[in-house]
Design a protein around this nucleic acid. Structure first.
Lengths: 223, 223
DNA sequence: AAAATAATTTAGTTTTGTCTAAATTATTTT
DNA sequence: AAAATAATTTAGACAAAACTAAATTATTTT
């Protein structure tokens, strides 16, 4: 098991997040994501290519190799386990965990991470609802979709929020929405695609499409 | 609150450990401690001097300034809290905690450390019996001394072991000695300064001076 | 107190990861 | 399909933290 520098790890993680199921990642996109100049990105791409973590041809874009993906999932596992720890055990609020986990994720002792996993009870998802890869890098992700895309009056639960800004957190707190909150969409307004939501026993409220599209749900286990 | 690089932190911590109550630290001693060439050490000393963490004049030796000590105590606080966490919560064995804590100590979020401290119940000493500085960098260290230096038949408890090698751990396990173990020195053999020890209700046993001098005790709170 | 030895510093390189400016390749517009 | 624009890479430089070899200062021996 080779070790990678903090910088290399940050590149690998960023590439993983940028590349979807298919399609190439571009130098400029990665440059923007990392807030690093494109020229510097090119240098690191060459390095990661020689380490066989990347399929890369100049001027053509790139994607992680199988090895690269494996490394990325290891980093993401560490990140999300620490987020869970910070939230669950140290009572950090939702929007504070990411920044600290960015540092903790680079401590690479495998034993540390596996013992932490055990201590936390092998959690499946982090505080944002993102799945935590297991030792083998496997991700179990239940089918989920944004509330803009679900049928009316179907009992769902919030599984994931795809925007972790303080502003979003503020809105969610105001409406008592958190991971696991049970809710139904009562009405869709075609004028602006806003939604009327009923969450738990609270008074129904309206969400704009620009907010709603970040809130993902899955079928509720027990309604 | 300024931040320091991992390298700078490692230098500061090493200097803190080398400098006693008084006397100068030498370039060569620090070079040996850090396994870094003396020339490299000189470079860093100049840097730490300009940052006012060090009282240093070339060819004369050096000590931490008041600021330097404050920084050192912060690093040691982080290190020992993580050691406590690894041992107490993740069930790492005594001799495994140091290496992992060496990495975790460089994560500098103050909020993380203070919340961790609270979560752990504000422990006073780490798994080796070394005191943990509080938020203000204060150390409460009860008077303790090696068992080679205590009177006979005085009930004491193990407070600290000044050697964390696997070999030492082996000996201690064999005799059922751990931090907190109650013991008395029953006899001193002047021939080789070996000691006869009775620990708890076990059969008394003999320790050589070379082992005994690493085992530190304090007066037992409730005998 | 001079010579020998040891400790420390200086000078000049190296590696990693970043940068700017210029050159090259790809894409879009007219 | 040129020309213009955008994206990407190359070339050269820099800062941090390490190194080796040589020079300097301090200490110990004789």
């Amino acid at each position: 098991m080779v070790n990678y520098s903090i910088s290399e790890e940050n590149y690998i993680k960023a590439i993983y997040h940028l590349q979807g199921a298919e399609g190439m990642v571009t130098t400029n996109a990665l440059s923007a994501e990392l807030k690093t100049r494109p020229a510097s990105v090119t240098d690191m791409l060459k390095k990661l290519k020689t380490k066989k973590l990347l399929n890369y041809e100049r001027y053509k874009g790139f994607r992680l190799s199988a090895d690269g993906k494996r490394v990325a999932l290891g980093i993401i596992r560490r990140h999300r386990l620490w987020e869970f720890f910070l939230s669950e055990k140290l009572k950090f609020s939702w929007d504070e965990v990411h920044e600290v986990a960015e540092e903790l994720e680079h401590v690479t002792s495998k034993k540390l991470i596996d013992k932490l996993d055990e201590y936390l009870g092998f959690p499946r998802v982090d505080p944002h609802g993102d799945p935590i890869p297991d030792q083998q890098g496997r991700i179990i992700s239940p089918e989920q979709l944004p509330i803009t895309d679900i049928p009316l009056n179907q009992p769902m639960e919030v599984s994931h929020v795809a925007n972790q800004s303080a502003e979003m957190l503020d809105i969610l707190k105001h409406h008592h929405i958190a991971i696991g909150t049970k809710l139904e969409v009562k009405k869709k307004f075609n004028f602006d695609n806003s939604l009327e939501i009923r969450a738990g026993k609270h008074t129904p409220f309206t969400l704009s499409e620009s907010v709603a599209r970040f809130i993902w749900v899955r079928k509720t286990s027990k309604s």
